[in-house]
């Protein structure tokens, strides 16, 4: 069943009837994800995409036994949506929304730490366990069921890695997009831990970028506890200091934030670091065949 999401996931969509929610819920259903309903306050009782709409997450959980929620709610309201999902007992909350204020996220994260809920994102493409459940905005067709786990802060760069892994004759167990914000619900290290413990995963690809120390923290954990090969790439070696490169969290503030510094730590901790993003899939295949 890989990690976090799979056949047993019963998914609700918060922001179900909005443009984004409608489009991506449709894509998820088409992929075979078990979308059991959605939430749009004030539209409870209606039917959307042949699924029931609820006013609250609590109602949705009671009626559908949902255990995963995906959030397509504008940034000003997304923190509230995350808290609502956690309060209703949703175990895996995936927030796609980009642009949530940092001060809101630190309060939300602090609250989640006191609950049994795990947040993925925000500002992320979601999670996919190929062939079982696609809970996110990634294109499903590039994925193939297999035994490589992927952790990434980026969207399209993850798709790039997925595509390379598939072309290298390997498939993916679970791909986790942890998001590009400074405060992440699930850190690189936590995602790597999940995949390391997953019996259906043989190798892990860790894609990071400039800013923060999440990749270094993960690398230190891998050095101490790793049991599977990890291939790593850090984007932004050519990014200038002090500038935000698209993702709110992608900014070089100090020396440890740079791609070069992180790649050095990764390599020292036994991660197979690739200098070129074009070599991610080939490197994984090479490492596994050794």
């Amino acid at each position: 069943m890989s990690v976090l999401v799979g056949k047993d996931s019963r998914v609700i969509v918060q922001g179900f009837t909005g443009t984004e929610g409608t489009f991506h819920a449709g894509q998820m259903i088409e992929y075979g994800t078990n979308v059991v309903g959605g939430v749009t306050p004030g539209k409870g009782g209606q039917t959307h995409l042949d699924r029931p709409v609820f006013n609250t997450v609590e109602d949705a959980v009671r009626e559908t036994q949902a255990n995963v929620s995906i959030i397509f709610v504008p940034p000003a309201f997304a923190p509230d949506a995350i808290l609502e999902a956690a309060e209703a007992g949703i175990k895996v909350i995936i927030c796609i929304t980009e642009g949530i204020p940092v001060q809101d996220m630190i309060k939300v994260k602090d609250y989640l730490n006191k609950t049994g809920s795990r947040l993925i994102g925000p500002n992320c493409p979601g999670i996919i366990t190929p062939g079982e459940a696609k809970i996110g905005i990634m294109p499903g067709f590039i994925h193939t069921p297999g035994r490589i786990g992927i952790v990434s802060r980026s969207g399209t760069l993850t798709y790039e890695a997925v595509d390379q892994v598939t072309k290298a004759g390997l498939g993916q167990s679970t791909c986790i997009g942890i998001g590009g914000d400074p405060i992440c619900g699930t850190t690189t290290m936590e995602a790597v831990q999940l995949l390391m413990e997953d019996p259906d995963t043989d190798g892990i690809i860790m894609i990071g970028e400039i800013g923060g120390s999440m990749e270094a923290d993960a690398a230190h954990w891998i050095k101490a506890h790793g049991t599977k090969p990890v291939v790593g790439f850090i984007a932004g070696k050519t990014a200038p200091a002090g500038r935000t490169m698209g993702h709110a969290g992608a900014i070089v503030g100090g020396k440890a934030d740079t791609a070069a510094a992180k790649m050095e730590i990764l390599a020292a901790c036994g991660v197979h670091v690739v200098e070129s993003p074009a070599q991610i899939g080939a490197k994984m295949a090479e490492v596994l065949s050794n």
Binding site: S152, R153, S154, G155, T156, L157, T158, E160, G180, I207, E209, I210, F233, A235, G236, K237, T238, A239, R243, M245, G246, H247, A250, A259, E275, S276, P277, A278
Partner: peptide, 27 residues
């Protein structure tokens, strides 16, 4: 010119590896 911030940074890096130097970041 790239879609997505992470891929845009990775593209800048690959330009450098190809002997050039990125003139911009553009998502």
């Amino acid at each position: 010119m790239v879609n997505g911030a992470g891929l845009a940074m990775a593209t800048m890096d690959i330009i450098k590896l190809s002997g050039g130097s990125p003139a911009n970041f553009l998502d």
